[in-house]
Design a protein around this nucleic acid. Sequence first.
DNA 1: GTCGATAGATTGGTATCCAATCTATTCCAT
DNA 2: ATGGAATAGATTGGATACCAATCTATCGAC
Lengths: 250, 250
Amino acid sequence: MSGRSEQIAATICEAILSHRLVPGAKLGERELSEIFRVSRIVIRQALIRLSEDGLVTVERNRGAFVAKPSLAEAVEVFESLTIVEQGVIAQLGNRPRMSLLTELRGNVERQKAALGHGNEQLAGEFGLEFHDLLVALTRNRVAIELHAQLKRRARLLEALYRCDFDHCQLCDEHERLVVLIGRRQWSRAQQLLDEHYRLVARGYRIDDEALAAMRPLHLALARNAEPAGASAAAKPAARPGKRNGKHAHP
Amino acid sequence: MSGRSEQIAATICEAILSHRLVPGAKLGERELSEIFRVSRIVIRQALIRLSEDGLVTVERNRGAFVAKPSLAEAVEVFESLTIVEQGVIAQLGNRPRMSLLTELRGNVERQKAALGHGNEQLAGEFGLEFHDLLVALTRNRVAIELHAQLKRRARLLEALYRCDFDHCQLCDEHERLVVLIGRRQWSRAQQLLDEHYRLVARGYRIDDEALAAMRPLHLALARNAEPAGASAAAKPAARPGKRNGKHAHP
DNA sequence: GTCGATAGATTGGTATCCAATCTATTCCAT
DNA sequence: ATGGAATAGATTGGATACCAATCTATCGAC
């Protein structure tokens, strides 16, 4: 409903976070405007939104690209996640919301159950959710949005650096973290959290093949690229011959 | 240099942070486009940038306004600042950069000197800088930018809620904070920081007169404009006969 | 083969136009 | 006179066309 550029930005964001658009991919204004059937200006506004969020970098007179953070910046993102969540733990000391720990315990149980069934994919999802729940304990929307932004940037990194996690150990640390929080041992909890994120960061390796997996924009955005009309076509399908044959990957 | 909309956004941001544009003020596209001598689209792009930063809110088909955070949101902003800085302190425990404490000590000395000369204004400036330096200790640009964004929102609040600080006590707490960090008493330091920000938050009172200080855009954005508090009383009612202050903002 | 020039393509920005929506006034009925 | 509907104006959201500046890539000369 609200602004067309807003929902286009959300669509592109979703495509980036699900790795259908890989870091470094060019986001051409003309191409996107044809895909979404809007004018270039709306596309540019969407790209501005994404660039403010850190998911897209705009180079003057060259265009917009999916952000491709350096390894140094990747470390900084994880460190920032650590900082925020350590701060959240410190806040728990002042305003004990121990009743809310139930949610954390429930999440850990779901992680363990998923691991018991050998579903590491699902366990990973729950593992991400754990950190959301931790920040949600503050009931502070500003902090929650801050954390969500950092997490978006972290998910972007997953596309760039192959991750190889020891889900067992990660889940175990989550459980120990809940115990420490329950015992109000904030300092120990912060220390464990730091080690936890360092373990996560160690799971990342440079992945050259990810960049080879680049696919054309109209494929990456096909699912969500609905025509401008209220309900014009159910299928974007193959676009009828505008101009084709210039999609060589550089 | 880089994008026209970018520098216009920076100019408007600066005007907001120095309280020449008060919360709730309308940012009309046509009016701004005439002031900056650019097309409306560039203005809209600048407004989008500012809205992503949280300094302006855009309401569909109604326009853009300088953000007017509720008291609840103000509390959340300060709590988030606390969270980030507490996390920074926790990080200092892992990577001791004690040599950089010199900068913090120097800042405290400048605060005390300013207070000694009775210059509370200058002491307040140094007080803000103290928290920047604290976060800068991490050498983490992502965290620094995160903190800077929160501080911009905090400075916006100063225009909405009149602040009445006990600069002596604030400076004293800064000094004690440096001592605690030097002694590696991270937990105590975090606790003191929390109390510190609660003291700051208590200094804020609802200020109705600030909204009355609204002035036309072209005056607020003039090159050599002064902050709202000083010379606003000279011409309180600049608008002839139009409606005044009817900007209810849920 | 390397270096430079030229021609295309893309971006940044302007001007104009139109539809949808919100605001405020006016006018009418009670 | 007052409340409500109708209307006219203003503002936003967006489209289209157009132009200048810049980047890219091909082509040609040495």
